[in-house]
Amino acid sequence: MASAANTIARVFPFVLSLGRVAGFFLDAVAAIFTPKYYWKTLLEQMERMCIHCTLPILFVLAPMGAVIALESVKVFSIFGAANMTSSLLAVAMFREIAPVMGGIMVASQAGAEIAAEIAGMRVRGLIDALEVMSVNPRKAVIAPRIVAGLLVTPVLTLVGTFTGIAGGYIIAVLVKGANAGAFMENLFAWVTMTDVVGGLIKAAVFGVMVIVISCYHGFYAGRGAAGVGQATNDSVVSSVVAILVMNYFLTTAFFGFDI
């Protein structure tokens, strides 16, 4: 049994790192729920994450909404159903685009920043110094960031959703000349509470996943400047892949039950 596990680990190193991330996550969860609690660090991290991620999320989601409006105005005009542009836009935003693009932007801003920061701490020996001072680095450094990711990402996603809808409005109504009243009338025609809540849960899952992966890559960074760069690189790649893969399963779980 052990040799089989070794063979799998040698052929697919991916499996090995997956297991390590899972172990790291469980350690972090244990650290979150046991004292001592670092409330001040948590608030600082939430503030920093909000401030640093808001602008990127707005800048990415507004153009995404604009592109969806641009394409769907054209496609729906073929059927003479141009009014449905806004319905599709709102559903797509709430369910898919806002959580996924929001998660990717949190990964590339906050996640990469956290990976670089923790890898910098590791490289300069600060994490060992914390342990020497008998401060548990998982409780002082990792846990507040994960909780901050869990709480902040859904909020940012909600902000991003409305930005995306605003971007779609600008393109559909002001540029392509769709009817403004019809746009607003049909905006929430298809959106149900399941879509909103499902999107927010997706965002929370992505937020936790991204921060755990970034903390993992930072925590076990290699040496020197090259190690920090490598940790940041790895954290971005694995977070983006994890988000896009997980998204399919979450979509099927939340919205696909009546298929």
Binding site: P56, F59, V60, P63, M64, A66, V67, L70, E71, M101, I104, M105, S108, Q109, A112, E113, A115, A116, E117, A119, G120, V123, R124, I171, G224, A225, A226, G227, V228, G229, A231, T232, N233, V236
Partner: peptide
């Protein structure tokens, strides 16, 4: 600025690249 600066440069590169790509995408689609 040392190892720290490499991390900052990498993380800023990702954000800038994603934002620029999505913005250019509108104009390319149009």
């Amino acid at each position: 600025g040392g190892a720290w600066g490499v991390g900052v440069a990498t993380s800023m590169a990702v954000v800038r690249m994603a934002t620029a790509m999505v913005f250019i995408n509108i104009f390319l689609t149009e």
